[in-house]
């Protein structure tokens, strides 16, 4: 998967987790939703680890940093055009 593809998949998975978490906040006993939420988080975790390995740290104060270079400061940052993938034309 290239970077844009990986970032897109990760963005989708993290968004699923957000929407499911908000649902679970008011339906904490919904086992189906819990199962789905956990499976999304699991897949996102794995993909996030791969992404960070290839393209650098994602979390402030949490992600590992390479010994010889501190990539956190790398540009572009998310609010810049160059950071983002094209959303249009979904399957």
């Amino acid at each position: 998967m290239n970077r844009d593809c990986m970032l897109k998949r990760l963005t989708i998975l993290d968004f699923l987790a957000v929407d499911l978490q908000l649902y679970l906040d008011s339906h904490p006993d919904d086992e189906n939703a819990i199962t789905k939420y956990n499976s999304v988080v699991d897949e996102a975790d794995g993909l996030r680890a791969q992404y960070e390995d290839l393209y650098g740290p994602l979390f402030s104060f949490r992600s590992y940093s390479k010994r010889d270079e501190f990539n956190w400061t790398d540009c572009p940052w998310p609010w810049e055009n160059g950071f983002n993938f094209e959303i249009g034309g979904d399957e």
């Binding site: 990760l10 963005t11 993290d14 968004f15 957000v18 740290p57 940052w77 094209e86």
Partner: peptide
Amino acid sequence: KKMEFPVK
């Protein structure tokens, strides 16, 4: 370090 929804 990523957007919730991409802005491009």
